[in-house]
Design a protein around this nucleic acid. Structure first.
Lengths: 344, 344
DNA sequence: ACGTTTCACTGAACCGTATCAGCGGTGGCC
DNA sequence: GGCCACCGCTGATACGGTTCAGTGAAACGT
C-alpha cells in the first residue's frame, strides 16, 4: 500500500538502485534492454519519483512562485491576475513544473515569502508582478540569488530581467486617436500612483497631450476599484471645465465611469468618450461597448514564464520586450461634441 | 554562501544534529538554555528548514493543491475563483502551508494532476471545486487516499467531506420575492448543465416556481460567458411570451443581459427584472445596480481550507454546511409591468 | 548505599533519489 | 597476447532533516 520506490523496482528487476535511477532518467549506464524492462516494471507498479527525495539530491524543486500583493477584495475584480495565471500555467504545463501561489497584504510580507520559499528550497524561481517605484523587492531578490523575472519596465528591475511591453506607444496611439476626434480636454483615471507603470503612463500622458494639441489634461489616481472609478468620474464630470474624454486604467473603472456618465444624463459617446485600458469580456458586454487598449495578458504570462524557465535552466538572462498592446475602437468613443470643454 | 543546515548549527553550538532538531522543533530533549542558544545561532546564520529534507523524513509536504478546470479564457471573467483563492490563502497563511495551483482543460487532466501531486508527495491534500454530476474525480481521489474536501452538495461527493451551503433556500427566497412582486413568468439563464449545482438549481427552480404561483418558467443553459448570456437573453426577450424577470447564474451574464435589454429598449426594472447570482463589484457598478444573490466566497474558501487542514491533521472528516447566501435587492428588480407575459 | 528514574544529549539509522568511483567482462588494436 | 577503452552494472555515499535507541550523569527514593 505504500508508495513504490526505486528500491522496489530494483528488487523486482534484480538490479541495483543505481541502475534503476539511470534507466528511469534516460541516462547512459544501462543497456536498452534493461532500461525497457525497468521502465515496464515502473509503469506496472505505478512508480512516481518522490519529489522531496529528488530535490534533496540537489535537483530542482520543480516549482516556481508567484506572489500577489493586493488587498484580497481587489483581486477578484481584476481579471488581470487570473488571466496572467492561466498564461503562466499554459507554459508550465509543458515542463511539469508547478506554480506556488500566495496572496499577501504588503511588500514586507511578500519579501518574507520569497525568503521562506527560497530558503526552504520550495521554488526554483519567481515571477514578480506589480512593479513599484523604488520597489523594495528588487534588491532583496537580487541578494537572495533567487532566479526571478519581473513584469514591468526595465528601468525599475535592477539587474533582474524584465518582461515588458512599451506602453508609451499605445498611450500615444490612444491620445492621438482622441485628439484626431477633436478632443482637447482629456482626463485619465489612473491606478495606484505607487506602481511604476502608473508613473510612466502619467509622465507620458502629459508629454503626449502637449505634443498632440490636447490643451487640457488631468490625472486622478485611484485604487482600481469601481467605487473610486465612479467617484473620480463624478468629480471630473461635475467640474466646470469637464473633459470630453476619459481614459481609465482598467475596465471595471471604465464601466463604473460609464454608469456615472449615464446617470448624469450624458450620452456616451456623444458627450463623453471613454477608453478602457485592459480589455476584458466586461468591456464588450456593456452598452456602448468600450473602446479599449487590449493586450494579450496570458501571452505575457507565458512569455515571462518561458524567460524564467530559461533563466533557471541556463542562467541566461536579459530583458525581453513583448509586442505592444493596441487600441481597439468600439462604441464608447466618438468625435468631441460641442458641449464639451471648448464651449466654456 | 551555501544554505546553512542543522549540521552547521550543530557544529557551532557544539552539539549533535539531533539536539538541534529537538531544539528547533520545540520538542523535549534539550534544556531550555541549550534550546535558546541553538535558536539564537539559527537566527543568526539565517537557517531555514529544507522542505525537501523534511518531507522526505515522512513529514508533511506543507502544501495543498487546487486545480481549476475551466477553459483559461473563462477564468479571468469569473471573479469567483480569485475570491476563492484569496479566501484559501487567508486561512493558509496562518499555518505556513502553501498553495499549489494548476489550471487544466478537462477532468482527465485534472485527475492526472492529482495522481502526480499525490504520487510525488507534493501536496498533503486538495480542495476540489466545480463538482459535476457523476463527477469522475471523486472515485479516483477516494482510491488514491489523498485527503480532500469538495466544495459542493454532499449528494455528489461520495465519501469525501463536502463544504457547501444550501442553495435551495436562497433560490426560494429569490423566486418568492419575484412572485411577490407579481412576476408570473420567470426565466433562468443557467450555467453549465454538467455542474451539479446547476442541476440542483434547475430542479429546485421548477419546483419552487410551481409552489409560488409562477405559472411559466424556463431555463436556458450557457457556458457562463457574457456572450452566451447576451444571446440567451436576446432569445428570451424576443419570444412572444417573454419573461418579466430573469435570474442569471453569474453576474457577467446578468450585466450582458442588462445591456441586451436596454438595447431592445426595455426598461430595467420597469419592463424586466434582473437578478444576478453571485455578487461582485461589477453588480454595483452598472445602472441600474443589480439585485443579486450574495455569498461570502472568500469565507467559503477559508471554510474549506480549515476543513481540509483538520482532515490532514487529525483525519477527522465530516461535511460542513456553511451559512446560506442571501438576496440583496438593488435597482434591477421591481413589480412586474403590465407589458409582461400576462398581457399575452 | 544502592537501585531507579529522569534529564540532556549522542550516534546512527532512515526517508528516496542522484551520482560517482570502481569492477569484471568484452572487444578492438597494435 | 597484452594493453586499453568501453559497456553495463554494483555498491557506497550524499542530500538535510527526523527519530529512536542508548548513554552518562544527576536526582531521587527507600
Amino acid at each position: 500500500m505504500k508508495r513504490p520506490t526505486i528500491a522496489d523496482i530494483a528488487k523486482r528487476a534484480g538490479v541495483s538502485k543505481g541502475a534503476v535511477s539511470y534507466a528511469l532518467n534516460g541516462l547512459p549506464g544501462v543497456s536498452e534492454e534493461t532500461r525497457a524492462r525497468i521502465q515496464a516494471i515502473a509503469r506496472e507498479i505505478g512508480w512516481r519519483p518522490n519529489l522531496a527525495a529528488r530535490s534533496l539530491s540537489g535537483a530542482r524543486a520543480d516549482a516556481i512562485g508567484l506572489v500577489l500583493c493586493r488587498p484580497a477584495r481587489f483581486l477578484g475584480v481584476e481579471p488581470f491576475f487570473m488571466e496572467l495565471i492561466s498564461g503562466i500555467e499554459g507554459e508550465l504545463a509543458a515542463s511539469s513544473c508547478a506554480l506556488m501561489l500566495q496572496v499577501v497584504p504588503d511588500h514586507e510580507a511578500e519579501i518574507a515569502v520569497y525568503r521562506r520559499w527560497w530558503g526552504e528550497g520550495r521554488v526554483d524561481g519567481a515571477i514578480l508582478v506589480d512593479l513599484h517605484v523604488d520597489d523594495p523587492r528588487i534588491p532583496v531578490v537580487e541578494r537572495l540569488g533567487m532566479p526571478a523575472v519581473v513584469t514591468g519596465h526595465p528601468s525599475g528591475t535592477g539587474s533582474l530581467p524584465a518582461v515588458w511591453s512599451d506602453e508609451v506607444v499605445v498611450l500615444r496611439e490612444v491620445i492621438e486617436y482622441l485628439a484626431a476626434l477633436g478632443h482637447r480636454h482629456i482626463a485619465r483615471v489612473a491606478g495606484l500612483p505607487a506602481l511604476l507603470h502608473t508613473r510612466i503612463r502619467d509622465e507620458a500622458f502629459a508629454e503626449i497631450c502637449a505634443e498632440s494639441g490636447v490643451t487640457e489634461h488631468q490625472v486622478v489616481h485611484t485604487d482600481y476599484t469601481g467605487e473610486q472609478g465612479a467617484r473620480a468620474t463624478r468629480r471630473l464630470l461635475s467640474s466646470r471645465a469637464r473633459p470630453s474624454a476619459i481614459v481609465y486604467d482598467n475596465d471595471i473603472m471604465a464601466v463604473a465611469g460609464l454608469s456615472v456618465a449615464q446617470e448624469m444624463r450624458l450620452d456616451v459617446p456623444a458627450d463623453l468618450s471613454i477608453v478602457a485600458w485592459d480589455d476584458s469580456p466586461l468591456s464588450q458586454v456593456v452598452r456602448p461597448s468600450l473602446t479599449a487598449v487590449t493586450r494579450d495578458i496570458p501571452a505575457g504570462g507565458a512569455h515571462a514564464t518561458r524567460a524564467l524557465l530559461r533563466l533557471i535552466e541556463t542562467g541566461e538572462t536579459g530583458s525581453l520586450e513583448g509586442p505592444p498592446a493596441s487600441l481597439l475602437p468600439r462604441g464608447s468613443t466618438a468625435p468631441a461634441g460641442k458641449l464639451a470643454s471648448p464651449a466654456l
